[in-house]
Simulated assay, not measured.
Amino acid sequence: MIAVLDEIDRNIVAMMQVDATLAYADLGERVGLSASTINDRLKRLRAKGVIRRVSAEIDPHALGLDLMVIVLVEVTGRAEELAFITAMQAVPAVMECHHVAGEFSYLLKVRVASTAAYEHFLDRHLKTLAGIRRTQSLIALSSAKDSRVLPSQAPAEMG
């Protein structure tokens, strides 16, 4: 289990989520620490798995990935479920794969160029798998909010 973060770590994490290119000196100035102390804290946060990776957030439309589809998938059988998970992890168009409660087994977030590309995804990556009982596709027309930034305040402060 990951340790609970103190207020300074939470502030550092919040700023890193918004702009991971901030210089350590800038981060330190904002939280009242030296650049070397920021460096030490970031190393510790990485070592503990709090910061899993630092990457660039790319506009999907810039890559021609104009269609986002939420796919609900019902999978039957444990062996089929494990094969499904392995298959989805290997498909770049699958941005997220979540095991969910309810009528369906999994929720996928899929990014592709078009409805034709989505049909190809279904034909090649879902319909070919054993144990897929049914799917339901929800095409996003627009996104009022699409964020990967996690709330960083303490759980008691969230509302």
Rank of each mutant, 00 (worst) to 15 (best):
P155T: 10
Q17G: 14
Q136R: 15
T76Q: 10
I58R: 06
G49S: 03
R78C: 02
V94S: 06
A113D: 10
E57A: 10
H98W: 04
Y106F: 14
V71L: 11
T128H: 05
E7N: 15
A144Q: 14
G28M: 04
P155V: 10
A35F: 01
V69Q: 05
L126R: 03
A87G: 08
Y118T: 03
R78W: 10
V54C: 04
P92Q: 11
V54I: 14
V71K: 01
L33Y: 11
K43L: 11
F84E: 05
K48N: 12
A20F: 10
H61Q: 06
R44P: 11
K145P: 00
V112Q: 04
E74Q: 13
A117Y: 02
T37R: 10
L42M: 14
R44I: 07
P151Y: 01
C97Q: 06
M16V: 09
V71H: 02
G102H: 01
T115F: 13
L122R: 14
Q136G: 07
G49M: 01
L108R: 02
V73R: 01
M15L: 15
E119H: 12
E157S: 09
P155K: 05
E157A: 15
I2L: 15
Y106N: 03
M1D: 11
V112H: 04
V50A: 08
M15S: 04
H61A: 09
M95P: 00
R124L: 13
G64S: 06
A62H: 05
I51P: 00
F121Q: 02
Q136C: 06
G28A: 07
M68F: 08
V100E: 09
I85R: 10
E74K: 15
P60C: 01
I139S: 10
R44N: 12
V100Q: 07
V54E: 06
V100T: 08
A47D: 15
R53D: 13
S143K: 12
L65V: 05
E103Q: 07
M1F: 11
S143Q: 12
S34F: 00
G77T: 06
N39T: 02
I2M: 15
A62D: 06
N11S: 14
G49H: 00
L141P: 01
L122V: 12
E80F: 05
S34M: 00
V94Q: 05
L107S: 10
R53Y: 06
D146V: 00
R78I: 12
A144P: 10
R30A: 14
A35N: 03
A101C: 07
V4C: 08
S36Y: 03
L82I: 07
L65P: 02
E157I: 05
E29P: 00
P151E: 10
M15P: 07
A35T: 00
I38E: 00
V18G: 04
V91Q: 08
V110N: 08
L33P: 03
S105H: 03
R46H: 11
V75K: 01
E57S: 12
Q136Y: 03
Q153W: 08
P155I: 06
G77P: 06
L126F: 05
L107G: 07
L22G: 04
I51S: 02
E74Y: 07
V13A: 13
I8F: 03
V75G: 02
N39V: 03
P155F: 04
I38T: 06
V69L: 02
N11K: 15
E74N: 13
V112A: 09
A87C: 12
A56V: 09
N39A: 12
L122W: 04
R111Y: 09
T76Y: 03
L141V: 09
D9Y: 07
E74P: 00
A130P: 15
C97V: 14
